[in-house]
Design a protein around this nucleic acid. Structure first.
Lengths: 398, 398
DNA sequence: GAAACTTTGTTTATTCAGTAGACAAACAAG
DNA sequence: CTTGTTTGTCTACTGAATAAACAAAGTTTC
């Protein structure tokens, strides 16, 4: 039984209110104490005292006086987004992306490299190099680097162990422990789709929604679920394997042991495989997403048809997603999102014709706003969130 | 934006702790004050004062002294499950089931009737009759009837309106308002699959799990989702339409406008349709679940095969469910659960062969323990939950 | 431009809930 | 009978939020 019964006491109350005040300032600055009290519903005095603590912690600061609204001019408060920096890493199948962000998620520095078929040890070396560079590039600040988040294309257990990343050929790797020991910083490891979903919720297309489904369509398909405003990770952290949802009972065989999996029809891999077996003007060796996109851009009808087929199949799976989750928003991200131009129409057509009418109320289908940065930004945001909420945790009772 | 910014104050603290104490006693009685303090982590004095309030509210009571463990004998506390009664209703396609339960979910009275093709007005009359009977049969108690919960086979909006119940031919019916006006009691309306899921979590096979998927396989298929210990209802309350998940891209046409929906292959309706088109020894008019079960019981190979086909297709969808949700438990309920005998094996076979290995850790597939009562019991439990959480509130805070 | 009103932010007294620890009652074991 | 333990209550104390008074710094009105 995992009902977390928490005991409530004054400490919890204070941390909660302090967090609430900080959140309000962070999301609305410049803002006065009085306005903060209004928005939070807290007493003016309470806000005053919490604000003075936050100022002494250097998380917020006072700027000059603001505009009067018929009385004394307010003292405006600012969120001090430069109080610390966060590192977010996206380990892709053939690339490594690292970003350094401030506490607001603004990118301050960015390192990218591409590779192919590196071993774990080789990737680890590059990873260390990128992290080192980002750390040294961070300007001086009260809190320094507040944490490292890493997104990986695989399944991550609730304890932070990478259980299986098939496209990297990784198995049972405890990268979290390695990084924590080396850098002595809080480290979070997460599936890239979950990270992308979180990134989109925090900074991208999903800012205003509480139930977001992020479809990471790359070589395979992974899905990140934001349900009731929080990441849903399932019993062991393996939720979102919608790439292996059956959409064709006796369809093609998949490496997962199943048949007719969605990602066999709607992923980058599917597009490439279809392209190789088609009669387009491209030698098999040069069939890549980028080259296909170029062909399509030149108006090659056969290539465009290849994209449209994938778009249609994307729609089939997204239809299922809508019936399952009744979300506010579905965001298509990762590499395939760059082909929005040719995917969008067949996808929407498939959807509109088939979804139960009432599901479509207030439903948005978007392509990623952050493009290739959602995962890295999401991971950076994870660390920020942890940092700002530390010791707000009440004691847990069983 | 729906971030609920709650302000924290002492009232919230007290309410939370009181609720925690009551929950602890309810789940562990007979239990002493000292032991309650231990389990909750609260101070002995705090527990003492909250307990005395709960006693004066008649929600708990003292029984005699318990066994000494080497010191003063403890005064044992009991949860007073007879402090009030709850009514749970299950409106089926061709039956109406009402139960009267105590605060612990024990059934005190039960009324059932069957019908076919009644209008909304006719069903409403029967519904009133059943509720009236249940109310008058309730023994006298401090709080009397504390609420009515109704489960319906259709989609219910977050505001309690029944938007569409296709098999009853209902559309936009505000049953909640009708019942609240007539009985002047709190009324909750919920989709039957959601109610069933809740019932199973509270009283049935799912007691110890936090992520439960309840598959209500009747004429159609609906799914109730318990995620992170709470019912997930989606953006507008329409989640769980997994019956209309595509499992065959160009499959049979469904009334929902889609093709290849799961419930076309794995529901009671699917079984009956297949049976009619088969060459079993049963005139088309007599093809019912009950008659087919009888035939199978007699060892009729053709009928058993019909069941097994449905079981296999159930497995296809459940496979998807596992990949999507990584749940602790999948419970198959409603009418098809009675055919467990023939469905279970093909279902499990389909599953075991195809699911990613790590998803199966700590995963249980069960058939409903409450059989046909899950929905009614779940709805009764909803009202109890509301009652216990509202009533305990000493003061309203703004 | 002076009086009256508004808005902002601080300060003070008060309230309320939980905690620690003292204490008494009730019991077990030697 | 003595010692030690467990249970439950009571009292003094702490910490946090609140209401209300107040001071400071504006604006509006005539």
């Amino acid at each position: 039984m995992t009902i977390i019964n928490q005991t409530w006491n004054q400490h919890v109350v204070k941390k909660g209110n302090k967090s609430l005040v900080l959140e309000t300032i962070k999301d609305n600055y410049p803002i006065s104490r009085a306005e903060t009290a209004n928005r939070t519903g807290l007493n003016k005095g309470t806000v005053s005292s919490l604000v003075s603590e936050l100022i002494s912690e250097q998380l917020i600061s006072e700027s000059g006086p603001g505009e009067s609204s018929g009385g004394r001019r307010p003292v405006m408060l600012l969120f001090n987004q430069l109080a610390g920096y966060s590192i977010g890493i996206d380990i892709g199948v053939n690339y490594l992306l690292g970003v350094l962000t401030d506490l607001q998620g603004n990118i301050c520095n960015e390192k990218r490299m591409t590779y192919s078929k590196l071993s774990y040890e080789e990737i680890k070396t590059s990873l260390f190099a990128i992290i080192d560079e980002l750390i040294t590039s961070a300007p001086p600040s009260p809190y320094g680097i507040i944490g490292i988040g890493v997104g990986v294309p695989g399944t991550v257990s609730n304890t932070g162990e990478i259980l299986l990343a098939p496209n990297l050929d990784w198995k049972n790797i405890h990268l979290q422990a390695v990084l924590e020991r080396k850098y002595e910083l809080p480290v979070v490891i997460e599936n890239e789709a979950n990270a992308g979903a979180y990134g989109e919720k925090k900074f991208g297309a999903g800012k205003d929604a509480d139930n977001i489904i992020y479809v990471s369509a790359g070589i395979g398909i992974g899905v990140g679920l934001i349900l009731n405003g929080a990441l849903y990770k399932g019993n062991n952290g393996f939720s979102g394997e919608l790439g292996h949802m059956t959409i064709e009972v006796d369809g093609n065989k998949c490496r997962c042991g199943n048949k007719g999996c969605w990602e066999l029809y709607a992923s980058e891999q599917a597009l490439l495989t279809n392209a190789v077996h088609s009669d387009i003007d491209l030698p098999a060796k040069e069939v890549t997403l980028e080259n296909l996109a170029n062909l399509a851009e030149d108006g090659d009808a056969k290539t465009i048809e290849l994209f449209e087929t994938v778009g249609d199949y994307l729609g089939v799976g997204i239809n299922n997603i809508i019936n399952i989750f009744n979300p506010e928003q579905v965001i298509i991200g990762n590499r395939m999102a760059t082909s929005k131009k040719w995917l969008r129409e067949p996808l929407i057509t498939r959807m509109v014709n088939q979804t139960l009418w009432f599901q479509q109320k207030g439903l948005q289908i978007d392509f990623s706003e952050l493009s290739t940065h959602s995962t890295a930004l999401g991971m950076a945001a994870f660390s920020v969130e942890n940092f700002l909420e530390v010791d707000i945790q009440p004691k847990e009772v069983f």
